[in-house]
Design a protein around this nucleic acid. Structure first.
Length: 424
RNA sequence: GACCCUAUCGUCUAGCCUGGUCUAGGACAAGAGCUUUUCAAGCUCUCGACACCGGUUCGAAUCCGGUUAGGGUCACCA
């Protein structure tokens, strides 16, 4: 039975790299019908924070990675100390004050990495390893080996940055006579300009992406593409399909640069694929949180607005930014829109348009367009000459959904009221 | 500095294991056009890569070696 683990340390938020490591672990477990263990590596009591733990758990849940077992290293100190005592008794380790140090014997050891192939190390280059620190807490490599072995972890899937920890852990596996698991070292994710992914090059926390309005499925799809490809020129892949197609050996060896533009594209694709009702569901908490609408807001109206923007947003956040004029009358007018309204006085045209609209029985976009076009014909002007100022007056912007659809949703009274503001 | 990992369009990648079908395919981005009331979307097209040197071979993006470049690790942090 395949068993993998994701072992974050609650000394910071779950970042993009950690999220992807979790993804590949979870995906591997799912593809093999195995178990996914979550182990919190909180041996550094001083730096570990409850706040971070909660955030990590939330982010993993949001991404959709359910864990089968949950452990905390801080609750297992006795186990580590027992093993240290055993190694001490066997003469494989020695004491230095309260600390327990493992004696490293020089030798050549190899691992067969699932992604990189064979990697050879010379332990002669490694100094003696601290097992138990002076404060009696275990070191990372020691606790990690004992946990992976005692939890029955069969495959260790982790970042490339752990390659150099592998020989240190391997000698401990041997010393404690634990069976050695399979290893797979994932390439790291780098920032857009190369180098480490850092806050300077963009958001790094999974929760940041959640707040910016990315859908978890989209983020997972994008992260999956960073180092793995389903083949067949496929870019968008449902997680269930990925589970079927995934093979750890197909994961790339090369570090990949995080590219926000492609993430945006993937997110937009997922937004478009959603039914408007489902999209509204995703949007609603955000709209309430940002106090754009109240909890009991007319969802019929909301749904109409959602439909107008579904095709033109990359993130949920953008919906909030673009659709403001549908929810309040004191919306801002951009300088470009201002120009459309001041270059030419449209009082006469707006007045006539209001009259046309008043005569309409059905205020649907087809009728609105018909009325609009007949006025334009009567005035002998081009449609664009009136479209732009009207859009500016109604929305405060020069860009947005189709004008007639937009007017239909806005409704007759509000359309009239907004046009009147610009009649002198 | 030592050790380790890696190297295909600007970016993500397919191809590499099992050399010929690769004048290297796709996606994002960029540019042009179509459509159009704007912005998107959609459609069509363009730009654009096998890091370098050597070897093996009839033949190398694919195998081997070196160079260079990038990344990682060298804690009583995890």
């Amino acid at each position: 039975m395949v068993k993998v683990r994701f072992a974050p340390s609650p000394t910071g938020y779950l970042h993009i790299g950690g999220g992807r490591t979790a993804l590949f672990n979870w995906l591997y477990a799912m593809s093999k019908g195995g178990k996914f263990v979550l182990r919190i590596e909180d041996t550094d009591v001083a730096r570990s924070k409850k706040e971070y733990l909660d955030e990590i758990l939330d982010s993993l849940t949001w991404l959709g990675f359910k864990w089968d077992e949950l452990y905390f290293q801080s609750q297992r100190f006795d186990i580590y100390r027992d093993y240290a005592a055993k190694l001490l008794a066997e003469g494989l380790a020695y004491k230095d004050g309260e600390a327990v140090i493992f004696k490293v014997i020089p030798e050549k050891i190899k691992i067969m990495d699932q992604i990189h192939g064979e990697i050879e190390f010379d332990t002669g280059l490694i100094k003696d390893q601290v097992l138990i620190k002076s404060d009696l807490s275990p070191t990372y490599n020691f606790a990690c080996v004992i946990d992976d072995a005692s939890m029955g972890i069969t495959h260790i899937i982790r970042g490339d940055d752990h390659i150099s920890n592998t020989p240190k852990q391997l000698i401990l596996y041997k010393a404690m006579e634990f069976p050695v698991p399979e290893f797979a070292h994932l390439p790291l994710i780098m920032g857009t300009e190369g180098g480490r992914l850092s806050k300077r090059t963009g958001a790094t926390a999974i929760s940041d992406y959640r707040n910016m309005g990315y859908l978890p499925q989209a983020l997972v799809n994008y992260l999956l593409l960073l180092g793995w490809s389903p083949g067949g020129n496929q870019e968008l892949i449902d997680i269930n399909e990925a589970i079927k197609k995934f093979d750890i050996r197909d994961v790339n060896k090369t570090a990949a640069a995080f590219n926000m533009e492609k993430l945006n594209w993937v997110n937009a694709e997922y937004i478009r694929k959603l039914s408007p009702e489902k999209l509204l569901e995703e949007l609603k908490p955000l709209l309430i949180q940002k106090q754009i609408v109240s909890n009991d807001f007319d969802s019929n109206y909301l749904l109409k607005v959602v439909k107008l923007f579904q095709q033109r947003i990359y993130t949920l956040q953008e919906f909030c930014e673009f659709s403001g004029f549908f929810f309040r009358d004191d919306f801002e007018i951009t300088p470009e829109a201002e120009k459309r309204l001041t270059t030419k006085d449209c009082s006469k045209e707006f007045g006539l348009l209001i009259e046309k609209f008043k005569a309409l029985e059905n205020f649907d976009h087809a009728s609105i367009e018909q009325a609009f076009r007949s006025l334009v014909a009567e005035l002998q002007i081009k449609a664009g000459e009136l479209v732009h100022p009207v859009r500016a007056a109604l929305t405060g912007k020069t860009i947005g959904p189709g004008l007639f659809e937009l007017i239909e949703v806005l409704g007759k009274p509000r359309t009239e009221q907004r046009l009147r503001k610009f009649i002198r």
